[in-house]
Nucleic acid binder design. Structure first.
Lengths: 341, 341
DNA sequence: TTGTAGGCGTTATCAC
DNA sequence: GTGATAACGCCTACAA
């Protein structure tokens, strides 16, 4: 059976060279003669030697692996972020362990511990909507392992972050609506435990105020799940029961906007003629539906890529005992204006 | 500095108990007295002891980690499969390392080797469209590590597989079109190096033949990238230049169908009145576009879940030296009939 | 330039 | 019920 993989010891035995020399030859250390290096390399190839990275990890305390936790993978935005993460990690010779919190703080905590036990070199996290994460994070992450938060962050947690300016993006979107002449603008927001929900709400509110429109809390509808079309659907129904003069909806995500579309379609409300709709995130779907949806474009792939870049820099700095300070990267967004507004 | 994590040795030193006993106590072995077990557990908790799974892996030759390679993560279908994979793996206390081949056989091969070096306990793979994979797979995977292929498989490679019956699903879809009265049905297929492209094409062809319609190779349009709307778009344009009598299109994926939608919209061809369109995969988008798209529903989450289940069974069997035979699981699909046909 | 020796943290075997 | 010892495969001072 060829079941046993060849190890450094096997090479050493066959070649009658000490295993330290083998190791050095394999890793291209300068203090090995060309002759022996070649001998080693040749046999290594012949016996199909592959380093056992577990053994190496135990010894060097580096796994060349990062852990990633997102609320969900089945998600246009997060899947693109993950794409960026995996690709950049691979460029830098890191592997990615992926976990989904499902927006549950308990699971998130458990997963964080799993990753630590697995000795990942660093963690990328987009936090769940549940509250009280900060204290847990503090406790779990106090010891040495670098963490970079992206997209869904906790402001007060001290670490590097890669985000967009949710407040500004929302502000711009709503300002655009106002400039277009819409005056009774409802907001279909998220639960206000999540920082990005808060910021998008704040941007909405500020845009109204700065444009001398009154902010009316009654026009704010909370969607328990940002990514559930049904939430948008039922809030649209609710809104139209309570108000007859709405002329635009600013939704926290494209999926909520889609729920609005669905209900409006059913009762023959025309978009944007009767009521305009603005989304957030630019899901694939948004450019294809009729009328296609105006939305906020987020740099998803780049967010993942950048988060990895920062994380790996921090890992290196820690290994070299180099001082470094946390970064707070704010990636630019843009409005995509289409037919729904 | 609390930088150093507490180890079994620390516990042993503090408690003046040998580390072997500590280890046993920690893992709930029966041959440890209640008294010492409690002592150990208490101190472990107090010092926040967490096992180092790397050390354990080196010793036990089990990493409790599986590797997964898919063509792409930004993909409605694969993201759902991955969801199923991660969740089932987590249920069984396995972690998932995720990699994307981008349909490149070279990268795929490199990644397979990476995963092996990382000592993953098993691999889940959905192969790329490029050819010649089988020989490479044989070479890479000859030694002991179990592999389960899913969705995009290589028929002749000997291992367990989790798939759908692509040919039957396509056959059913096209038969449905024929029964509805459509007679000049074009196929927008994929490159014929991929088994599922081949099978969907074969299903299309067989349905025509069984219903006494002539199969015309000119009505088959190949899309280099199954998931590129633009391919569907340009083939739609090409098709209408070459044929004026087409009354239905059976597309290999919903995204190709969307490309068809896009072109038809631009030149005011009405779906399904002028030409019907049938998709494959039931992307989220398909239920929302106008007219919403008839398509084939695949059990994506379940496919991932089942693949993990089989893989972990095989891992266990190998560890126990139990014989087992490869499974070939064919998951059921169904037609979702909507407004586009 | 090469080799020796020890250890990373855990687990398994065997003796006490 | 407990402990001594070795081993998993690799890396790295340090010595020769």
């Amino acid at each position: 059976m060829g079941l046993k993989r060849t190890t450094i010891n096997d090479l050493a035995a066959k070649l009658k060279i000490s295993k330290s020399t083998i190791s050095k030859a394999l890793k291209g250390y300068p203090d090995v003669s060309d002759k022996t290096r070649k001998k080693v390399l040749r046999l290594a190839k012949k016996l199909n030697y592959k380093p056992n990275s577990i053994a190496s990890s135990l010894r060097t305390r580096q796994t060349k692996t990062i852990g990633v936790i997102v609320p969900s993978v089945v998600h246009d935005f997060f899947s693109k972020v993950i794409d960026g993460i995996i690709q950049e990690a691979e460029n830098k010779n890191y592997l990615v362990i992926l976990l989904q919190s499902g927006e549950h703080a308990d699971l998130e905590e458990k997963q964080l511990n799993l990753l630590k036990n697995k000795q990942v070199d660093g963690i990328l996290l987009s936090v769940s909507n549940e509250t009280g994460i900060k204290e847990r994070l503090n406790k779990i992450l106090e010891k040495g392992i670098p963490v970079v938060l992206f997209d869904k962050i906790i402001k007060s947690f001290e670490c590097s972050k890669v985000i967009i300016d949710d407040k500004l993006a929302a502000y711009n979107a709503v300002s655009y609506l106002i400039n277009k002449g819409y005056k009774r603008i409802a907001h279909f927001g998220g639960v206000l435990t999540a920082q990005n929900s808060i910021d998008r709400f704040l941007g909405y509110k500020q845009a109204l105020i700065d444009n001398n429109l009154t902010f009316n809390p009654d026009l704010v509808y909370i969607n328990p799940n940002n990514d559930d079309i049904n939430d948008g659907y039922s809030n649209a129904e609710k809104m139209l029961k309570e108000h007859t003069d709405i002329d635009a909806v600013f939704a926290i995500t494209d999926l909520i906007a889609l729920g609005v579309y669905k209900y409006f379609n059913e009762i023959n409300i025309r978009i944007p003629k009767d009521i305009a709709v603005f989304g957030f995130s630019d899901w694939l779907i948004s450019s294809v539906i009729t009328p296609n949806l105006s939305t906020v474009k987020q740099p998803s792939f780049e967010m993942g890529r950048k988060a990895v870049e920062i994380l790996i820099d921090e890992i290196k700095n820690i290994n070299n005992n180099t001082d470094f300070s946390f970064q707070n990267i704010v990636l630019p967004t843009s409005l995509i204006i289409r037919k729904s507004t």
